[in-house]
Computed example of a mutant assay.
Amino acid sequence: MGSAADFGGWIAERSAAELTEPFTFVIGTDGVLRLAPRRSEHVACAGGDMVLSAGEISFVCHAGRWAVGEVSNQSTGYCPDVTSWATVARALDDIELGRPSGFTHEVVFRRCPDCQELNIVREDDFVCVFCGSVLPAAWNVDPGV
């Protein structure tokens, strides 16, 4: 989605049923928003490339104008940090979509330094669910994302 016109054409092709569910999204390293059906893998949506952010996004239409209803960084393919919001905001602003001020649902990902398992941190409990080790406060999943 490089422009508001691109988004307008894309959204016009979506069925009412499709619009009831969120879509998979990625922000490529070029800063461009890419969208796919919800059950699509983020890595496939990105063509296997690295991304600046990834997650799920839904849209709402108010008075004939489209906006983002909800948006998260929920992607176990890329596990983006919550700080990737700035790149999402820029991509949405580039296509002139109304948006929230941040992720409406933030997912905190950490890799355990001891067992190397991927964890989703819930309720600020930075303890590995696999081995009980303390998880780092700073994002450490993949520095290339």
Rank of each mutant, 00 (worst) to 15 (best):
D124A: 15
L35A: 05
A54H: 03
E13I: 00
D30L: 00
C115R: 02
V145Y: 06
G8L: 08
M1H: 11
C131Y: 03
V141A: 09
P100V: 05
P37W: 01
W10D: 01
C128F: 09
G9F: 01
P80K: 09
N140W: 02
D114H: 11
D124L: 09
A4K: 15
N140T: 05
G64Y: 04
I27C: 00
S133E: 14
C131T: 04
P37V: 06
A44R: 13
S3N: 07
S3G: 10
E106L: 11
R122M: 11
E123W: 02
R38K: 14
C128I: 09
S72E: 01
P113E: 11
C115P: 04
F130P: 00
G47D: 01
V82G: 12
P22Y: 11
D93S: 15
D81W: 01
A89Y: 00
L33C: 04
N73Q: 02
G2Y: 05
E41W: 14
L135R: 06
T76F: 13
S15D: 09
R65L: 13
F23M: 10
I57Y: 00
R38D: 07
R38I: 07
G9K: 14
T20E: 15
L135A: 07
L19S: 06
E41L: 15
R14F: 01
G28H: 03
V121N: 10
G31T: 08
F126I: 02
G9P: 04
G47K: 02
G28F: 02
A138W: 04
E96Y: 07
S75Q: 03
D124K: 13
C112D: 10
F25S: 03
L33W: 01
V129P: 01
A91S: 14
V82P: 11
E13M: 09
D142R: 15
R99F: 01
G132F: 06
R111P: 03
H42N: 11
S133M: 07
R38S: 11
I11L: 09
G55Q: 09
P100N: 05
E18S: 12
G132H: 09
